[in-house]
Design a protein around this nucleic acid. Structure first.
Lengths: 102, 102
DNA sequence: CCCACCCATCGTAGATTTGCGATAAACTAT
DNA sequence: ATAGTTTATCGCAAATCTACGATGGGTGGG
């Protein structure tokens, strides 16, 4: 593997954040501290199937997780990986700052 | 526009960071505080044309900038936008934290 | 049992991304 | 002039992304 583990993981998180709809979903999930798919669909100007696909990508990136609460599905931020992503981004920008100041 | 200006800009930066080669390039540029294209090509396991393309994307995202120094081209991080990106990511994760703690 | 509701998944289309080799463009040096 | 060096760009192929409508699979209520 030509890249470091950190680079691979950070790139994956960055990619997941690389669409405004997914940023919106994450911010919305935070503001509501978990919510149902329907609530998200109501807020976004796209078809339900498209929203579902964005949710899937965030889920695949392990930034969110869903739990079935019939008849609905509740999504929450995955705290553990959210913190990891946060730390990776912080490290990315911080390290650069340290280097830049020398 | 259904998304906020911040979301659009953050998504654009995140997208640019969404490939390990581009993360590598940015970290490499920091560690060298500017360098020539050839140096980057030597470090990456991909064709020169592909590296050039990744540089173009980072340039389009305004995270780096190039200056011609015949017969070579020197690339540096674009400090201003780098700081903006940093602030946007910080805001994104921080705001979420504040909300989550309520 | 059947219907309505909620959501995921399928199939599809078009756009974008990623990668390569080949070529072009700009400059140096001989 | 010619040849070499360095980098961008072109043309192409394969893969992935984005979006949609339609369909399917659960679940709960009548």
């Amino acid at each position: 593997m030509p890249y470091t583990e950190k680079q691979e993981r950070l790139a994956r998180y960055a990619k997941a954040l690389g669409h405004p709809a997914r940023l919106f979903i994450l911010e919305f999930l935070e503001s509501q501290s978990c919510c149902f798919v329907g609530n998200i669909v109501d807020e976004l100007p796209m078809a339900q199937s498209t929203v579902s696909q964005h949710l899937k990508e965030l889920k695949d990136a392990r930034l969110i997780q869903g739990s079935i609460e019939p008849p609905r599905v509740r999504y929450c931020v995955n705290r553990e990986n959210w913190e990891e992503a946060k730390a990776l981004f912080q490290g990315f920008f911080k390290e650069a700052e340290i280097i830049a100041n020398h």
